Amino acid sequence: MKPVVTFTLEEANAMLPELQEDLFKLQLLTQQFEMKFELLHQLTKKHREGTLPADNGTDDPFFELESQLEFMRMEVELAVGNFERKGVLLKMINPGLIDFPSVLNGEEILICWKQGEEQAAYYHGYDDGYKGRKRYPDAGLAE
């Protein structure tokens, strides 16, 4: 199902500073999640091998770490959902790739922004994807 909200190029670019900040926070959160997940993986491996030091007396030495991961997973889901609630499509977290539903010459398109670009200046059709990007007419960027 295609989104109901559409953006002009100007509206998309006006939202970018806020979206970039949200994206940066999400990237940090996913990085922290991945690090904790790897730590849990290493600890469970050591536990199976019998090389993990004695636990702190709990039945489940991984409960706290697993709880932190579950909470972080919920935070990631909420952050990803915030993009959708703003009417934009978060296509990739790393590197950031955001699409803005729009209409150009009567055709439904997606204005496309990739992290590192100063502004949104490209678009593609719903079925074309990133590789089908074209420069948005009058986007103000040098070719």
Rank of each mutant, 00 (worst) to 15 (best):
P53F: 03
M72I: 12
A54K: 11
H47F: 11
F71E: 10
K36W: 10
E70C: 03
R73A: 05
Q42I: 15
E38G: 06
L52R: 06
E64R: 08
S67W: 04
F63P: 02
K45W: 13
K45Q: 14
F33Y: 14
P53M: 00
K46D: 10
M74K: 11
K46N: 10
E70G: 00
R73T: 04
A54D: 12
F33A: 09
L39A: 14
H47A: 05
A54H: 09
E64L: 05
D60C: 03
F37M: 15
R48E: 11
P61A: 01
R73G: 08
M74R: 14
E75F: 09
Q27H: 09
E34P: 11
G57L: 01
Q68S: 03
L52S: 06
Q68F: 00
N56G: 09
L65P: 06
F37Q: 15
E64Q: 07
K46T: 04
D55V: 00
L28K: 14
L65R: 04
F71L: 13
T30I: 13
P61Q: 05
M74L: 09
L69Y: 02
F71K: 14
A54F: 00
L65E: 04
Q27A: 06
D60S: 03
K46A: 11
F63K: 10
L28Q: 13
M35S: 09
E70W: 02
F71M: 07
Q31W: 01
M35A: 15
L29I: 13
D59P: 07
F37T: 14
L65F: 04
P53E: 01
L39P: 09
G50S: 03
E66P: 01
T44W: 11
H47G: 00
E66M: 06
M74G: 01
F33E: 10
P53N: 01
T30F: 06
E75P: 10
L69S: 06
Q42H: 12
E75S: 07
L65D: 02
K45T: 10
K36Y: 12
L29H: 08
K36L: 15
Q27L: 06
M35Q: 12
D59Y: 10
T51S: 13
M72N: 02
D55I: 00
L28G: 10
L52I: 04
L29P: 13
E64I: 03
K46G: 00
M35L: 15
Q68V: 05
L43N: 05
L40E: 12
N56P: 02
K46V: 01
A54L: 06
F37R: 15
E38D: 12
L29C: 09
L40M: 13
P53R: 03
T58Y: 07
L52F: 04
